[in-house]
């Protein structure tokens, strides 16, 4: 495995923000993209109330599946205050996933949300694999 191939970086865009995630496996790519999105939201501090959720998703293609995955996690933050710091895939193929998500209801008093993500967009959303490395760019509407 090459060093530093797993992770995410933020990228700029005319009106909005995005991230580029890389990983050696598809599940890890999904996890890196999720961590990047959490980081974009601001400084979110875990709380004391533990939460766990099994996410099951189905989509027509892998890009749509990634879109739906990030959208679900975003909804959990905005709708339920849930921040999942442990993400584990029980199943992931090109059109389906089952993930065990564990974390806490984040501590709003200690957290600072810096941006509001309106949505995960489909713009240039393309998962590519070169030399064994998966890469994806995700643009968020903010």
């Amino acid at each position: 495995m090459q060093p530093n191939v797993t992770g995410y970086t933020f990228i700029e865009h005319t009106a909005d923000l995005g991230l580029r995630a890389t990983a050696t496996t598809l599940p890890d790519l999904f996890i890196q993209a999720a961590r990047g999105m959490y980081a974009l939201l601001g400084q979110l501090e875990p709380g004391t109330e533990p939460v766990e959720k099994i996410l099951q998703l189905q989509a027509p293609d892998t890009e749509s599946l990634l879109h739906d995955w990030l959208s679900e996690l975003l909804w959990e933050v905005d709708g339920n205050g849930r921040l999942f710091d442990a993400l584990e895939f029980e199943w992931l193929d090109e059109q389906h996933l089952t993930a065990r998500c564990s974390g806490t209801v984040y501590d709003t008093a200690r957290s600072e949300r810096s941006i509001e993500i309106k949505a995960v967009t489909y713009h240039d959303l393309r998962i590519e694999k070169h030399d064994g490395i998966y890469q994806v760019t995700v643009i968020f509407d903010i």
């Binding site: 749509s64 739906d68 959208s71 909804w75 995960v120 489909y122």
Partner: peptide, 27 residues
């Protein structure tokens, strides 16, 4: 409003094909 847009972008993903609509950008 953000959620309504997101919901329907998702729900309509396969609608263009259903009506024979060919689009240069899936958005």
């Amino acid at each position: 409003g953000y959620q309504v847009c997101d919901d329907y972008l998702r729900e309509m993903r396969e609608v263009p094909a259903r009506y024979g609509i060919d689009l240069p950008d899936r958005q």
